[in-house]
Measured scan of single mutants.
Amino acid sequence: EQLARLKREFNENRYLTERRRQQLSSELGLNEAQIKIWFQNERA
């Protein structure tokens, strides 16, 4: 579920704002660094 949600977010926007990253962190139970790194890896 977390992965599917991250992929949906990535398809909508390849870059997250700090606020959006905080929201996802709270909703998915991941820390902000994990989300940031995931997005960086997807863009690579």
Rank of each mutant, 00 (worst) to 15 (best):
L16S: 02
R8W: 11
K36N: 14
E18Y: 08
A33I: 13
N13H: 09
E42R: 04
I35H: 00
K36W: 13
N41D: 09
R43F: 14
E12V: 08
E1A: 08
N41E: 09
R5F: 07
S25G: 09
L3S: 06
R14Q: 14
Q34Y: 15
T17D: 13
R21P: 03
L24Y: 00
A4G: 04
N41F: 07
R43T: 11
L28G: 00
N31K: 09
L24R: 00
S25C: 00
L16C: 00
Q2N: 08
F39T: 00
L3H: 07
A33C: 15
Q2S: 06
A33P: 03
K36R: 12
L6M: 05
L3I: 13
A44G: 05
L16N: 03
L16K: 00
W38A: 07
L30W: 09
W38N: 00
L30S: 02
N11A: 15
E12K: 15
T17S: 14
S26Y: 12
R8G: 04
T17Q: 03
L3V: 10
L6D: 02
Q40R: 11
K7H: 09
E32R: 04
Q2A: 14
E27W: 06
N11M: 14
R8E: 12
K7Y: 07
A44I: 11
N41V: 07
L6V: 02
E12L: 11
E12I: 09
R43D: 07
N41Q: 12
I37R: 11
E27G: 02
L28Q: 02
I35W: 01
Q2F: 07
E1S: 10
T17A: 05
S25D: 02
K36D: 15
F39C: 00
L28P: 02
R21V: 15
L28W: 02
N31P: 15
N11T: 07
Q22G: 04
G29R: 04
W38F: 10
T17K: 05
E32D: 07
E18W: 06
R5H: 09
A44N: 14
L6C: 13
E32L: 09
I37K: 12
A4W: 05
A33H: 14
Y15I: 11
Q2V: 15
Q34N: 05
E32G: 05
L3P: 00
K7A: 06
N41P: 02
R19I: 11
I35G: 00
F10N: 03
I37N: 09
E27V: 07
W38T: 02
Q22D: 05
S26H: 13
R14S: 13
K7F: 06
E9M: 04
T17W: 06
S26A: 14
I35F: 02
N41K: 10
R8L: 12
E1K: 05
I37M: 11
K7N: 04
L16V: 06
Q23Y: 08
R8N: 09
I37G: 06
G29M: 06
Q23M: 10
N13F: 06
Q22I: 11
N31T: 15
I37Y: 08
R19Y: 11
E42N: 04
N13L: 09
E1L: 08
